[in-house]
Amino acid sequence: MDRQKLITMFQTTASEVAERDFPELSEDSVIGNMGVDSLAMLEVVGEMERALKIQIPDDQLVGIETVGQLIDVVEKRLS
């Protein structure tokens, strides 16, 4: 799956979990500024893991600031 598709997937999943849209989301978007708390964000990641059939170790989810950084981690698990 290419990077843009992963970003779209993140955008769709985040909208589902947070029950609102994130139309302006890009690689540089800061997750902390999305107004979604850390635990809800774990839910977004969990949904992506399930859909992509991957498992990201918990420690790799600490320190992620932007959407692009999260997609980097997802891509690594996919490769």
Binding site: S38, G46, E49, Q55, G63
Partner: peptide, 26 residues
């Protein structure tokens, strides 16, 4: 920072309980 709670509280606690993040997410 925003990861503080996850790193120091949430992950160690659920690990101690023998539960995975994935179980909670589902």
């Amino acid at each position: 920072d925003r990861d503080f709670f996850l790193k120091k509280v949430y992950f160690p606690t659920i690990k101690h309980w023998g539960i995975t993040r994935q179980e909670l997410v589902s």
